[in-house]
Amino acid sequence: MQHNGMSGILRGLGWDLGLPLVTYYGLHAAGASDTTALLAGTAGAALRMVWMAVRSRTLSPFSMVMAAVFGVGLLFTVLTGDPRFLIIKHSAMAAAIGLTFLVTALHGGRPLTLAAQQSFQPGKAGDLAEAYATDPDVRRGHRLASLVWGGGLLTEAAIRVVLVYLLPIEMMVGVSTALTVVTFAILIGWNARYLATHRPAPATAAALA
């Protein structure tokens, strides 16, 4: 991705991961229960999502998915009293996004990677769409990237669900965040290596970057 687009993704990811993590461990150290600390972290992430939507005056499909996942995780936690659902919600989000990557790669007219690139570079949205429509290498690269990202996110989601029932919650909160960081690092590294190895033409590089 272009530097500005990638920087925006990494900043947003840092806030989305860091805010709940700091809130949880801060409150837990102060004596709060796992459920209370996780609920506070989830509430902080939800408030940030609302603030971003108000600031941009838009509510993206991704934001609506996140809101639904937050709500389901909160509902199951309240009904069952099991705070693990507030961690599993991250797997639900990863799985939803991963499936979207796969579906748009296999059956959609516009892979999610292209939609994401256009949202981060609105001024070049038309050029990116034209490159995708006219250049087979661009289409192949987007579809392959969507398949890899989709598979990677689904794998992350499955691993988290298994680990959440094997590890103590206090440990799992940090492991869950680390799992997301490692997954994104691997996927971004793969993307960079793919571009470097295939040395795409400028139009292809712009569409995949």
Rank of each mutant, 00 (worst) to 15 (best):
T35F: 00
T35S: 09
T35K: 11
A37S: 15
A37M: 04
A37D: 04
A37T: 09
A37E: 08
L38N: 08
L38I: 03
L38G: 12
L39F: 01
A40H: 00
A40V: 05
A40P: 03
G41T: 07
G41R: 01
G41P: 02
T42P: 05
T42M: 10
A43S: 05
A43G: 08
A43W: 09
A43H: 00
G44N: 00
G44A: 10
G44Y: 01
G44R: 03
A45C: 00
A45W: 02
A46K: 02
A46F: 14
A46W: 05
A46V: 02
A46P: 05
L47R: 00
R48Q: 13
R48N: 07
R48P: 03
R48D: 02
M49K: 03
M49Y: 02
V50T: 08
V50W: 01
V50C: 09
V50K: 02
V50P: 11
W51Y: 14
W51C: 10
M52V: 15
M52D: 15
A53L: 01
A53Q: 07
R55V: 13
R55F: 11
R55S: 15
S56I: 07
R57E: 08
T58A: 07
T58N: 11
L59A: 15
L59W: 15
L59Q: 11
L59E: 07
S60P: 03
S60D: 14
S60M: 06
S60K: 14
P61G: 04
P61R: 08
P61H: 06
F62Y: 13
F62Q: 14
S63D: 15
S63C: 13
M64W: 14
V65A: 13
V65S: 04
M66Y: 13
M66I: 12
A67P: 07
A67C: 10
A68F: 11
F70I: 10
F70H: 11
F70T: 06
G71R: 05
G71V: 09
G71F: 05
G71N: 05
V72G: 03
V72T: 09
G73P: 10
L74W: 13
L74Y: 11
L74D: 01
L74K: 05
L75A: 14
L75Y: 10
L75E: 02
F76I: 13
F76V: 14
T77H: 03
V78A: 04
V78P: 00
V78N: 02
V78M: 05
L79V: 13
L79E: 10
L79A: 12
L79W: 10
T80P: 05
T80L: 03
G81Y: 00
G81F: 01
D82Y: 00
D82N: 12
D82V: 08
D82A: 11
P83A: 13
F85T: 07
L86G: 09
I87K: 08
I87Q: 06
I87W: 00
I88F: 01
K89W: 04
K89G: 05
K89E: 12
H90D: 14
H90A: 12
S91L: 05
S91W: 02
A92D: 05
M93T: 08
M93I: 12
M93W: 12
A95K: 10
A95Y: 11
A96F: 12
I97N: 01
I97M: 12
I97T: 12
I97W: 06
